[in-house]
């Protein structure tokens, strides 16, 4: 799963969101690191919709323009949970190695 897809799914956890809401949420979740451009957002969103991970919640008219709200599907929640488990396992392995390295360095320098 790519980083933009991961953050888009995370942004939709809990509440449906419209396009710009997702952009703003992703920026906040990533602490300003991931700033999705509109073309990038929809390039990921269309695939998530096609794969059934994201669905349409509702459509509204805002200032004369169509606004769609997207929601996370059950399949999307499962995919996100699997990705979180994978990343957590990876992070655990790396953390253990780093702790061991630091312990060894501290022991060597003592």
């Amino acid at each position: 799963m790519t980083e933009p897809a991961f953050f888009i799914l995370t942004a939709l956890v809990g509440a449906p969101c419209h396009g710009y809401g997702i952009v703003a949420e992703v920026r906040e979740l990533s602490q300003g690191r991931v700033h999705l451009k509109v073309g990038t957002l929809y390039g990921v969103l269309d695939r998530l919709v096609a794969d059934g991970l994201v669905g349409l919640d509702r459509e509204e008219i805002q200032q004369g323009r169509l606004r769609r709200y997207y929601r996370l599907t059950e399949q999307g929640a499962d995919a996100l949970a699997a990705e979180v488990a994978r990343q957590t396992a990876n992070a655990d392995v790396a953390s253990r190695r780093l702790r061991a390295l630091r312990a060894a360095s501290a022991g060597g320098s003592a």
Binding site: H18, Y20, R67
Partner: peptide, 9 residues
């Protein structure tokens, strides 16, 4: 939808 997202930003 893309237009709305763009203009909202």
């Amino acid at each position: 939808d893309m237009v709305d997202t763009f203009l909202s930003g």
